[in-house]
Computed example of a mutant assay.
Amino acid sequence: MSKRKILVVDDNEDICLTIKQYLELHDYMVELAYSGTEALKMINSDVDLIVLDIMMEGIDGMELCRMIRDRVDCPIVFVSAKTMEEDKVQALSIGGDDYITKPFSLKELKARIDSHLRREERIRSNERYLLSSKNITIDLLANEVFCKGMKLPFTKKEYEIVKLLMLNKNVVFSKERIFERVWGLDSESQLDTVTESIKNIRKKIKAVDPETSYIQTLYGLGYKWDVTDEKQ
């Protein structure tokens, strides 16, 4: 099996070289770019994952990420000294898959890289078991939901609701019907649990993809999967 190629983009040469040396010890092929302009010349379909700094001269990491997403869809792991929650949310919402704050351990970085590449491999090998809509993908084998490549921390019931709505995109489900299909008629839970679960689903999706609508409320009727702007 050929080595997986990692592109590290950071204007700090010492950080680049340190990451390169460590990852090459673990059988990765690593290329370095010290600016956004240099990185754009190196990005192609052969790159398996990109490690990307945010604060760089010229084209910064956020802008570069947007440009990268027009070319390739490989995982992007941000590494940044920025620790504010809004920076992380922005980075993930524009196409990043992960975010590590500096200083970070090389061991953790490698673990994140390994995880994303395993996920990509699983998704490629199990495409027929995937449901996709806009930026949401459901892995039906693993019972996991991803938004922009990032795993969403859904409970079992939240997962079942999303799967039910995605499998029946043109169907409006009342709260009663969702409750019956997901919890069962003999459940001791209350009907309001459906409303609360959908609220939590929206909140978890919004943390990664704040600009896209997924579950539509039809007042007095129930809920349906929003197919507006969905790629055909």
Results as ranks from 00 to 15, higher is better:
residue 18 T to K: 08
residue 215 I to K: 12
residue 223 Y to Q: 08
residue 115 S to R: 05
residue 136 I to H: 01
residue 109 L to E: 03
residue 72 V to E: 08
residue 3 K to W: 09
residue 25 L to H: 14
residue 202 R to P: 10
residue 212 T to S: 15
residue 195 T to V: 15
residue 191 L to I: 15
residue 8 V to P: 11
residue 104 F to A: 02
residue 223 Y to F: 13
residue 30 V to A: 02
residue 1 M to Y: 11
residue 50 I to D: 03
residue 73 D to V: 12
residue 228 T to R: 14
residue 155 T to K: 11
residue 219 Y to E: 11
residue 170 N to L: 06
residue 9 V to M: 10
residue 91 A to M: 00
residue 193 T to W: 09
residue 229 D to H: 15
residue 7 L to N: 12
residue 200 N to P: 08
residue 96 G to V: 00
residue 170 N to D: 12
residue 88 K to F: 01
residue 123 I to F: 10
residue 34 Y to L: 12
residue 202 R to D: 12
residue 83 T to K: 06
residue 169 K to G: 03
residue 174 S to V: 01
residue 145 V to H: 00
residue 18 T to N: 12
residue 164 L to K: 06
residue 26 H to I: 06
residue 81 A to K: 00
residue 36 G to N: 09
residue 21 Q to R: 14
residue 199 K to N: 11
residue 187 S to R: 02
residue 159 Y to A: 03
residue 217 T to E: 15
residue 227 V to F: 07
residue 223 Y to H: 13
residue 95 G to T: 00
residue 7 L to P: 14
residue 59 I to C: 09
residue 45 S to M: 07
residue 110 K to D: 01
residue 12 N to D: 15
residue 20 K to V: 07
residue 9 V to W: 08
residue 90 Q to D: 06
residue 17 L to R: 10
residue 184 G to D: 02
residue 210 P to W: 15
residue 222 G to W: 09
residue 230 E to M: 13
residue 61 G to M: 07
residue 121 E to N: 07
residue 110 K to L: 04
residue 88 K to L: 04
residue 220 G to P: 11
residue 206 K to W: 08
residue 146 F to V: 00
residue 226 D to R: 07
residue 91 A to G: 02
residue 157 K to V: 13
residue 55 M to Y: 06
residue 70 D to I: 08
residue 126 N to Q: 12
residue 152 L to A: 07
residue 227 V to E: 13
residue 228 T to D: 15
residue 183 W to F: 08
residue 38 E to H: 11
residue 226 D to L: 06
residue 168 N to E: 03
residue 25 L to I: 10
residue 133 S to A: 13
residue 38 E to R: 11
residue 4 R to T: 10
residue 113 I to S: 02
residue 22 Y to A: 05
residue 121 E to M: 06
residue 191 L to C: 06
residue 149 G to Y: 00
residue 48 D to I: 04
residue 200 N to G: 09
residue 213 S to K: 14
residue 30 V to M: 03
residue 27 D to N: 15
residue 170 N to M: 07
residue 172 V to Y: 01
residue 167 L to N: 12
residue 80 S to K: 02
residue 128 R to D: 11
residue 191 L to S: 11
residue 188 E to K: 15
residue 196 E to Q: 14
residue 150 M to D: 09
residue 152 L to E: 05
residue 75 P to G: 03
residue 186 D to E: 09
residue 35 S to E: 10
residue 84 M to P: 04
residue 63 E to Q: 13
